[in-house]
């Protein structure tokens, strides 16, 4: 009974939905504000992401003709649920869920679910733009997952265990640095930010793969994206930032590190233009592959 409660708390409160949604909105606001300031603009007000989601919750849902209603409405729910569950696994300080053997594998699996949901959402919508976006997202996920998975797996290799706690307790070394660089290579594409914002290229294909979504399902997709941003930054912080013995200090360090990573990624997004799909694919399989190879080699050499 106690274990069930701890899982519920982890998913619903900390570090799950109740914590991640406001933090995600804060981080999204930070990104939008930073982009605006870098472009010399004023930028959105502080509560803007919150208002966006609340407004979408109050809107009507238009379901296109000939679309399976069940799948159409289930996809955003599955996406939010998967991202929240993934965040509940991340061993942030104070997380009530005990670390299970093999939870890294579960985490990596759950992190693929929102991508899968986006691809399916594009194909389900019967919109030609949605299908192009879904195709781009699917192909891109084949590219950026190489460095992303290798960065985590290399850490597991060093730790000798597929357990988040073990990953956290690896003594700091060269592999950390190499794996962090490999992880950061994959981060812009995972966050759908500019040089790799190919699947949500609003100038080319009008919108991302949820082009046909409106109202609460779209709000759930926005929420899912906000939580995914939190998940990615906090995962980076938890795995690659050395932990101190004090949980509260750890928490502050993780949050600050997450904001810093976001700032760097946003800076990259503002300075660069969008690549083509082939260019992004080649980038990830040449340079991402190279970084992955070096990281894996470093784990073996040690």
């Amino acid at each position: 009974m106690n274990a069930v409660w701890s899982y519920l708390v982890a998913i619903a409160v900390w570090p799950g939905l109740l914590f991640a949604a406001p933090l995600g909105w804060l981080e999204l606001w930070f990104m939008r504000k930073l982009v605006a300031r870098l472009q010399g603009r004023q930028g959105p007000p502080f509560f803007q992401p919150f208002f966006d989601v609340m407004k979408l919750l109050g809107k009507e849902t238009v379901i296109p003709r000939g679309v399976s209603r069940g799948i159409f409405l289930a996809l955003p729910l599955v996406s939010v649920a998967a991202v929240t569950a993934a965040l509940a696994i991340v061993p942030l300080p104070g997380n009530p869920v005990p670390s299970l053997p093999g939870d890294v594998v579960l985490l990596l699996y759950l992190m693929e679910v929102p991508v899968l949901c986006e691809v399916l959402a594009g194909y389900v919508s019967r919109s030609i733009y949605g299908q192009v976006a879904a195709m781009r997202e699917a192909i891109l996920s084949l590219a950026y997952n190489l460095p992303f998975l290798v960065a985590i797996i290399a850490m597991a290799q060093v730790a000798g265990s597929f357990q988040m706690r073990a990953l956290q307790e690896v003594p700091y070394g060269l592999v950390h640095l190499l794996a962090a660089v490999t992880f950061l290579l994959a981060l812009p594409a995972r966050m759908k930010l500019n040089p790799f914002s190919i699947a949500n290229a609003e100038h080319e294909i009008i919108a991302d793969s949820h082009i046909e979504y409106s109202g609460p399902p779209l709000a759930l997709f926005k929420l899912s994206h906000a939580i995914e941003v939190v998940l990615l930054t906090e995962l980076f912080a938890v795995v690659f930032i050395p932990a101190t013995p004090w949980p509260l200090v750890n928490l502050v360090v993780y949050l600050v590190a997450g904001i810093l990573v976001l700032g760097g990624v946003t800076l990259l997004a503002t300075t660069t233009a969008r690549l083509r799909l082939t260019q992004a694919f080649r980038f990830y399989w040449v340079w991402g592959g190279l970084a992955s190879a070096i990281t894996m080699a470093a784990t073996l050499v040690r």
Binding site: R32, A36, Q39, G40, R41, Q42, G43, P44, P45, Q48, F51, D52, K55, K59, V62, Y129, E202, I206, A207, I211, E212, Y213, S214, L218
Partner: peptide, 22 residues
């Protein structure tokens, strides 16, 4: 959408699809 008028300060976003628009 330019720095001078910056519609984003009012929360305005330009969307391509009518499904997302108000």
């Amino acid at each position: 959408l330019s720095p001078r008028y910056d519609a984003e300060q009012l929360g305005i976003e330009l969307h391509g699809t009518p499904k997302h628009a108000d």
